[in-house]
């Protein structure tokens, strides 16, 4: 249990009368990239926000990095939201400087390097950037936090193929696999599959598959997509 990054014990989450997550229990070990896959509305975002302490559970217990989750788990968890969540009045440079000052674990040099590689204008205001460039800056900030757990909620959603490709390359290049665990939620399974070490399939607020991607390939001869199809059939 000690080397587990994330522990969910009978966790449920309700929004009023609607149950988004039903009595879910699972563990995720430290290290590697974990894909949280499932259709829209299956409960992926809720699970990720619960893990990051951005939602409160209705029942059960969540332990991340050995700590019971509250919002203050943010010192160990970087959360990247699906929506545009940066302050649009800051320039890109100011956003990185602000991040440096509020995130003690932030590597500004790395962030500037990522942003420059992606050719995003440092002097442009966030509000004036294209959607793709805003996504690139968001990813650069998340990847520049030296935290044990990175959470990315639908980082590819609504972006054109070039931006998606950039993001996948950045993840592959900049996630520190020895020290960090990345959970990435998506319904674009085939695009992220080469990155994944482990896959969790969510449906109707329940985890219906939890497998190492290597096991799927070697023992069952399946891709993640094949496994999804089989389980959902």
């Amino acid at each position: 249990m000690d080397n587990m990054m994330i522990n969910f014990y009978s966790v449920s989450k309700k929004y009023g009368l609607t149950t988004a997550v039903k009595d879910v229990s699972f563990q995720i070990p430290s290290g590697g990239i974990i894909g949280l896959v499932g259709s829209n509305g299956s409960g992926k975002s809720t699970l990720l926000k619960l893990t990051a302490g951005l939602l409160t559970k209705s029942a059960g217990e969540i332990v991340v990095c050995g700590e019971t989750v509250t919002r203050l788990i943010a010192k160990k968890v970087a959360f990247l939201a699906e929506v545009d969540s940066l302050y649009d009045f800051y320039t890109v440079r100011e956003t990185l400087s602000f991040s440096k000052r509020v995130f003690p674990d932030f590597d500004e040099q790395k962030a500037v390097e990522i942003v420059e590689v992606l050719e995003v204008d440092l002097h442009k205001k966030i509000g004036a950037l294209s959607k793709g460039n805003r996504a690139r800056v968001k990813i650069a900030i998340a990847l520049s936090r030296k935290v044990p757990l990175l959470i990315m909620d639908e980082p590819l959603s609504g972006l054109d193929p070039l931006v998606r490709e950039d993001i996948i390359k950045m993840i592959a290049k900049y996630v520190e696999m020895e020290n960090q665990t990345l959970i990435i939620s998506t319904h674009e399974v085939s695009e992220v599959e080469p990155l994944l070490d482990h896959v969790l399939l969510v449906q109707n607020g329940e985890i219906i598959l939890s497998e190492k991607v290597e096991d799927l390939r070697e023992k069952k001869g399946q891709s993640v997509l094949d496994a999804m199809k089989e389980v959902l059939r």
Partner: peptide
């Protein structure tokens, strides 16, 4: 309103 709450609340500083 501007969806920055997820960023703001992920800042590892006390409430």
């Amino acid at each position: 309103k501007h969806n920055t709450a997820v960023f703001w609340m992920n800042i590892p500083k006390s409430g």
